[in-house]
Design a protein around this nucleic acid. Structure first.
Lengths: 110, 110
DNA sequence: CGTATCTACAACCATATGGTTGTATGTTAG
DNA sequence: CTAACATACAACCATATGGTTGTAGATACG
């Protein structure tokens, strides 16, 4: 996953409307119109949000007659979670290093 | 955690430079100047990035003489990870529902 | 076949963003 | 005490973003 893709992913999640769209798309399949009906903004605005989510790989649109169904790719959410796990792992490593230093200092002071 | 705070958090992570700053701040304490030295941009630009991370609650600056040390709050990373966990939980619930429906249909067709 | 519904996208606007340069203030070291 | 170092922030610029309105094409329904 390139830095640019990660940029797109976190940027896509940096908006409450888009997070809600992702939630609804995870919970079930909806057309863009169905999704749009739930937000106090124009249809075109919701389309833009869906487009941002598409570029981030969080959703895809599939055609069903005149409707486009918005479906999710939970794998992309997993990838974002893994990135945050990496941060947490860095933290654990640092805490471990500090613990080792402390044990060393305690031992030497006896 | 309000929607606005979540916006700031994911927005802060939507940039490769800021993600790197967070990693370095997790791995050890650095002054803003030390951090800035590693990026091909002006000092003021790095300051802006640090400011975005501060507003997101990902880092804090503490004074040590003329230096400001950039330190992390891993709890905020945890919170972001939990938000993504919620998405994954929604997915699991949906998969479970589909499994139940499938079992129902299989049972009724026997 | 005509109307309704659904969708795509261009053009526009106001605001936000990411970077720069320049100025100013505070702290440390010689 | 002065120079060096570290930092804050204003002003500026180019680009991106989030929302709107309007136009157009595709599909479904009566």
């Amino acid at each position: 996953m390139t830095d640019e893709q990660v940029d797109l992913l976190f940027h896509a999640l940096a908006d409450a409307t888009r997070r809600d769209i992702v939630k609804r798309a995870i919970a079930g399949e909806h057309s863009v119109s169905e999704l749009a009906a739930g937000y106090a903004m124009s249809f075109a605005a919701v389309q833009k949000h869906v487009s941002v989510l598409e570029r981030a790989g969080l959703v895809t649109k599939t055609r069903r007659g005149r409707e486009r169904l918005v479906t999710t790719d939970i794998a992309t959410i997993n990838q974002a979670a893994q990135l945050l796990d990496q941060f947490e792992e860095l933290w654990r490593q640092r805490v471990n290093r500090m613990g080792e230093l402390l044990a060393l200092e305690t031992g030497e002071s006896r």
